[in-house]
Amino acid sequence: MSKNIIQAYAAMSPGAPLEPYQFDTGELQPHQVEVQVEYCGLCHSDLSVIQNDWKSSVYPVVAGHEVIGKVIALGSEAKGLKIGQRVGIGWTAESCQHCDPCLDGRQVQCSGEKVATIVGHAGGFADKVRAGWQWVIPLPDELPAESAGPLLCGGITVFTPLLQHQIQAVHHVGVIGIGGLGHMALKLLKAWGCEITAFTSNLDKTEELKAMGADHVVNSRDPNAIKALRNTFDLLLCTVNVTLDWPLLINTLAPNGQLHMVGLPLEPLQVSAGSLISLSRSVTGSATGSPATLRQLLKFAARKNIAPQIEIFPMSKINDAIEHLHAGKARYRVVLKADF
């Protein structure tokens, strides 16, 4: 078998069960790194791409963008990495490196040839995956390989807003939705030193959420409980993909507070200008993070012993894992162990 043949699991059409699939990647490009996959997280974004929810999928889809593995090949232009080194690859696989955002260290906002790891590119539900060397992130030795993958997507997604809004330990942060993203937000904010309120539709998880770092737990389906939090939050981090009572939530923001979107509701947000103007509030959003920010996150997680709570499935049981996630049973991130 050619050394360029990759064994993978692919969706051949929107929403189809994944099936074994192999393909020839061709020669490794000078700027690329090839990684032997050990573990790969399973994220709701993988489901969205498999199902073509965002109308951008290219079939066959080989999803998987929370990859942990070891470097097995380096292109001639790859820098700072070595064969055998354990690394991670997240949402982005390539960026142009010459547009203004890239030159400014904002590669995640690349306006050139940015390539998502799982859109028109083969991701980590495979035995090997390739990416541009800047996006192949060294894994600190202190981080367990099996649980580090979700930090590269879910983790960076909730870490970036803390830097963007200059959140400090004196701030009160609310987290809406304590699932794959939200539970990592609680752990990071606890290490950050913030006061934390968790919004959940399941109060049975109260003690578990407090163990993760929440100081307060609020029923997200109780309008009166939310009204009582008027003018409270310096940052309200929304991780869910559903439409909520946005005017009610905007009113929980303190002066200069931000409602920050990292979940992706498909319906437009209904927000009145007056609710923003009167107290200088704002609605913001962000994607994942630059290679430098990814490195910062992994170092911080290693220093503070932060790890996602995971469930491991063998990659050969990938369709079972997808059904588990789709049914809302994941607690709190699913990770696939390569067993090709």
Rank of each mutant, 00 (worst) to 15 (best):
L186P: 03
L186R: 04
K187G: 06
K187M: 15
K187Q: 15
K187T: 14
L188G: 01
L188N: 02
L188A: 02
L188T: 00
L188P: 01
L189P: 01
L189F: 07
L189R: 03
L189Q: 04
L189M: 08
K190P: 02
K190Q: 11
K190F: 07
K190W: 06
K190I: 06
A191F: 10
W192C: 05
W192S: 04
W192P: 03
W192T: 08
G193C: 01
G193D: 02
G193I: 03
G193P: 00
C194Q: 03
C194I: 01
C194W: 00
C194M: 05
C194A: 06
E195H: 09
E195S: 11
E195T: 15
E195L: 11
I196N: 00
I196T: 01
I196A: 02
T197F: 04
T197Y: 04
A198P: 02
A198Q: 02
A198S: 07
A198Y: 01
A198N: 08
A198T: 04
A198H: 04
F199C: 10
F199R: 03
F199Y: 13
F199G: 04
T200S: 14
T200I: 12
T200R: 05
T200C: 08
S201K: 15
S201G: 14
S201V: 13
S201A: 15
N202Y: 08
N202D: 12
L203D: 10
L203F: 09
D204A: 12
D204P: 14
D204I: 12
K205G: 03
K205P: 03
K205F: 07
K205A: 13
K205D: 05
T206K: 12
T206M: 07
T206F: 10
E207C: 07
E207M: 13
E207I: 13
E207P: 10
E208V: 09
E208F: 10
L209N: 05
L209M: 13
K210Q: 15
A211E: 09
A211K: 14
A211Y: 06
A211I: 14
A211D: 12
A211F: 05
M212D: 13
M212W: 13
M212H: 09
M212S: 05
G213V: 11
G213D: 10
G213W: 04
G213F: 12
G213H: 07
A214N: 12
A214C: 14
A214L: 13
A214H: 11
D215Q: 04
H216N: 10
V217I: 12
V217D: 06
V217E: 03
V218Q: 04
V218I: 15
V218D: 01
V218T: 10
N219V: 09
N219Y: 08
N219I: 07
N219D: 12
N219E: 05
N219H: 11
N219M: 06
S220G: 08
S220K: 02
S220M: 08
S220Q: 07
R221P: 01
R221E: 14
R221M: 14
D222G: 00
D222H: 00
D222N: 04
P223Y: 03
P223Q: 04
P223E: 03
N224F: 09
N224K: 13
A225I: 08
A225N: 07
A225W: 06
I226A: 00
I226Y: 02
I226S: 00
I226G: 00
K227W: 11
K227C: 15
K227A: 11
K227I: 15
A228W: 10
A228R: 06
A228F: 12
A228C: 09
L229G: 03
L229I: 09
L229F: 11
L229A: 11
R230V: 15
